[in-house]
């Protein structure tokens, strides 16, 4: 009986695997119907073969734990799922994904692939993204005595004294690929600070900071917490701050009321070793029902 079941499983499995034609059919629909700001969420999260086929300009989200991602910058989400695959965690996905999301149409099937569009009730209009504004920002390193040394612009980022760096780049934070401000602080009491001009008015300023990749997991007395804070660059008044202790994986977030025209981001860690930070600094409006 066990042998027959095993043979049956092996005979059945190919029938739930999508063919290239199925993937292409989905890609054609998305190329036709997707709007600017849409994202494709793959379910299960590891079904990334779809990346081979999906339209180039369309955002794709697929990482372990992505069902809980608010995807704030995406008003609409295309969920491309393979529900028939063995051990697909349908309940866990529904628990994490569905709250705040409203279907905007029925399931559409392409072989074993199922495509469904949702309105993202957790989306928020994004007024400002620090990593995109870096070309017009300035950066400097605070010296322990109180002075400042300007950082040199290098490409789209900055190279600073004391080994500090600021750039906009892709990094992994607890398996999540994030395009963020990549900041290496100078170490010691000094900090690297980045000033952003002409920040649009918004309901809130949201600061999220994390240590990238496996460095986040590492712990030990030689590692020191990373402090990130955002302040009004004109008055110096602090708006939001976060601390990422050694061993903390994932983003630590804080939010403050928006409205400031110039923002200053300050990042510091006593020991810069393995404190490479991924910072998301955004100006957001309140959640609202996005238009379909």
């Amino acid at each position: 009986m066990v042998a027959l079941l095993a043979l049956g499983f092996q005979a059945w499995l190919p029938s739930v695997l999508p063919q290239d034609a199925d993937e292409r059919a989905v890609a054609e629909v998305l190329a036709r119907e997707a709007q600017a700001g849409d994202v494709v969420l793959l379910h299960p999260w590891w079904t990334e073969r779809a990346r081979l086929f999906l339209p180039e300009g369309l955002s794709v989200t697929a990482y372990l734990g992505d069902e809980g991602d608010a995807l704030v910058e995406h008003p609409r989400i295309w969920v491309l799922s393979q529900p028939a695959l063995p051990r697909t965690p349908a309940d866990a996905f529904a628990r994490g994904f569905l709250p705040g999301r409203t279907p905007l149409g029925p399931d559409r099937r392409f072989g074993p692939l199922v495509l469904r569009l949702y309105r993202n009730g957790r989306a928020r209009p994004v007024r400002f993204v620090a990593s995109e504004a870096l070309p017009t920002a300035s950066a400097a390193v605070e010296l322990p005595g109180g002075g400042r040394v300007e950082c040199l612009r290098e490409g789209a980022g900055f190279r600073c004294p004391g080994g500090a760096r600021v750039e906009a780049s892709w990094h992994e934070v607890l398996y999540r690929p994030s395009r963020c401000l990549f900041v290496i602080p100078p170490g010691g009491p000094g900090a690297v600070d980045v000033t952003f001009e002409a920040v649009p008015s918004s309901a809130a300023v949201r600061l999220e900071a994390a240590i990238v990749w496996e460095h986040a997991w590492k712990h030990g007395s030689h590692l020191t917490p990373l402090h990130a804070e955002v302040a009004d660059a004109d008055t110096g008044a602090g708006l939001a701050s976060v601390t990422v202790p050694p061993g903390r994986e994932g983003f630590v977030a804080a939010e403050a009321p928006g409205g400031t025209r110039r923002l200053r981001l300050r990042v510091q860690s006593d020991n810069a070793h393995e404190r490479e930070a991924c910072i998301l600094l955004r100006a957001l409006d309140a959640e609202k029902a996005a238009a379909p």
Binding site: L17, P44, L85, P86
Partner: peptide, 9 residues
């Protein structure tokens, strides 16, 4: 495990 895809999930 559900084969290779089951193990991935």
């Amino acid at each position: 495990a559900g084969g290779v895809p089951g193990a991935a999930s």
